[in-house]
Design a protein around this nucleic acid. Structure first.
Length: 552
RNA sequence: GCGGGUGUAACUCAGUGGUAGAGUACCACGUUGCCAACGUGGUUGUCGUGGGUUCGAUCCCCAUCACCCGCUCCA
């Protein structure tokens, strides 16, 4: 059965919104291209965000719901940054895991998270079944969570594997559970639920970050990464912005740009892409006021999607549970949308609003932070007692010269996916209704009900017939719209009904039709996409009327 | 990564071991003149890609890529 999502994907392809990347070579998993209409739509989404967050922001008045007035500034950072950025941000540790697969059980493990025990079994060399392993040492992995239960689990597995009658001959090599090192021979390792040792593959690097080489002669030492998020460029430039544009805390820095992640399973059209675009705000405030700002931004960002047409019943604001929070966050909420490719009741993330505390600025000062045994953030130390990942050593604190107070600001981060927002607006816009054809029979009509601010094309100029001066008058109007910066189409091809439907399908809010009467009194009909209602407007007033409607 | 499904014209899809099909769309001309009109004519395919079997493969076999579904994974 063809689902709504199938129809949306088909329309996106058919009308030039979204194509698969590298399609002529068979495609590339996780990458997508925006066609002539898609690029306009996505630009409008980003433009709406930039205008609403930055351009139209008034730093002298208090926005509704905000604790106080504040400033906003923009930024556009490089995609490739100093590799140390990603070590201090925590991405390096999280994104460069070694993974190993079990050939027998088809399960996958993070190599550094494997826990188990080595055991010596002297009889192994004589045992018909175990002779082939040419060893008396075996490692038993446990996937049981707690250390005590894990220990018990390894004992149970040993009994089962070597035989209960030989249990007394076993010599355990450690008191507690230990990990594996890269030098250990995996042929002697018994994976969970595997029937014999040696089912694990060699650990493979899982590069969740895109690695690249800086410099034409660069080697392994010149490895760098394409950014997995735009936020770190903002933190790295925090001091630059404070020093150059006379902003005072609280203030925000916004950035729109591409990010890259090697998603394990890119799926669901553009929802999980490996190259994607983010719209991020890092809002810096006093630690004492950070909770109020968190609430303010969370609610304001939720409202933004509603204002642009997402329906409340498909849009959800969800506060994270405690165990879902990142290692540094004291509060996070997701703005989620009920995409048609999800099951009923399920939602996909559009934007995360995170309270990041002072994790990022402090990590870039002193070295990467981690929670210590008491749950406090402290610089994570390596085996040598030095910071595991050294920071920049620069002072990124802020001095409030009126309160005479120095502090490291806390950060509220609303991080939105431009591609996910665009996809949500596409899914929301997709509509089928019933409209009578010229015989009065009801026909299914497909239309994209984009908010006029987002619609790729705002108006279409349609001469009713291709003669009697109508095309000429139409072209005049078309040029006037273009001159006013209003994206428009001119179409004189085929029957008028078909042309209306073509515009409906790409979501053009208004059609302007030149008819016989236009030639007499210089008026045209203005037809509404959603209601099909028509009104007559003087040609000379059309541009102002469309511009007025776009503003409202 | 695993299992299942799919891949044929711009789109939706038929089809067969022996020269590739329909509807829609698109283009031209004529007619019509406000919600998917009608007539006539026309354009479009390395049958996803690469191998193999065969006299001959879009069809059978193998591999590979992409998409969909379910697992797995997902700061």
């Amino acid at each position: 059965m063809e689902t709504t999502m199938d129809k949306v994907v088909a329309l996106c392809k058919r009308r030039g919104f979204i194509f698969q990347s590298s399609e002529i070579y068979g495609g590339l998993n996780g990458f997508w291209d925006y066609g002539p209409l898609g690029v306009e739509l996505k630009r409008n989404v980003k433009e709406a965000w930039w205008r609403d967050m930055l351009t139209n922001h008034d730093e002298f008045s208090v926005p509704p719901g905000a604790p106080q007035a504040f400033s906003m500034a923009g930024l556009d950072c490089s995609i490739i940054m100093h590799p140390q950025i990603w070590k201090c941000s925590g991405h390096f540790d999280l994104f460069c895991d070694h993974m190993t697969d079990c050939r027998e059980t088809k399960r996958r493990y993070r190599f550094d998270q494997i826990r188990g025990r080595w055991v010596e079994y002297p009889r192994a060399t004589q045992d018909e079944r175990l002779k082939k392993f040419a060893t008396t040492r075996f490692f038993l992995i446990t996937d049981v969570d707690s250390p005590e239960a894990g220990l018990e689990d390894t004992i149970q597995r040993a009994r089962k594997f070597f035989g209960r009658q030989y249990e007394k001959e076993l010599k355990w090599q450690s008191e507690g559970l230990v990990g594996l090192t890269r030098n250990d021979h995996l042929g002697h390792v018994l994976a969970p639920e595997a029937s014999e040792p040696g089912t694990l593959t060699e650990p493979r690097e899982f590069n969740l970050m895109f690695k690249t080489i800086v410099g034409a002669l660069g080697g392994a030492d010149d490895a760098a990464f394409l950014r997995p998020e735009t936020a770190q460029g903002i933190f790295a430039n925090f001091k630059n912005v404070v020093d150059t544009v006379r902003v005072r805390v609280p203030f925000g820095i916004v950035q729109i740009g591409k990010s890259f992640r090697n998603e394990i399973t890119p799926r669901n059209f553009t929802f999980r892409s490996r190259e994607f675009e983010q719209m991020e705000l890092e809002f810096f405030c006093h630690p004492k006021e950070s909770r109020e700002w968190y609430t303010y931004w969370r609610d304001r960002r939720y409202q933004w999607y509603l204002n642009l047409g997402l329906k409340r019943e498909r849009l959800r604001l969800r506060d994270h549970d405690k165990d879902e929070l990142s290692h540094y966050s004291v509060g996070t909420a997701d703005i989620e949308y009920g995409f048609p490719f999800l099951d009923a009741g399920e939602f996909g993330e559009l934007e995360g609003v995170a309270h990041r505390g002072d994790f990022d600025l402090r990590s870039h000062m002193d070295g990467k932070l981690a929670r210590d045994s008491e749950g406090n953030l402290a610089v994570e130390l390596g085996p040598d007692g030095k910071p595991r990942h050294a920071g920049s050593g620069k002072d990124l604190s802020y001095f409030d010269d009126q309160a005479r107070e120095r502090f490291v600001p806390h950060v509220i981060e609303p991080s939105a996916g431009a591609d996910r927002a665009t996809l949500a607006f596409i899914c929301e816009a997709y509509t089928e209704d019933q409209q009578p054809d010229e015989k009065g029979d009801m026909q299914t009509r497909v239309l994209m009900k984009f908010h006029p601010r987002l619609a790729p094309i705002k108006a279409a100029v349609l001469p009713l017939v291709k003669k009697d001066g109508m095309p000429e008058l139409g072209l005049e109007l078309y040029r006037a719209l273009k001159a006013a910066g209003i994206p428009s189409y001119f179409d004189q091809q085929g029957a008028i009904g078909k042309r209306y439907r073509r515009q409906d399908e790409i979501g053009t809010p208004w059609c302007l039709t030149i008819d016989g009467q236009s030639m007499q009194d210089k008026t045209v009909t203005l037809r509404d996409r959603d209601t099909l209602e028509q009104s007559r407007v003087p040609v000379s007033e059309v541009v102002d009327e469309i511009a007025r409607r776009l503003r409202s």
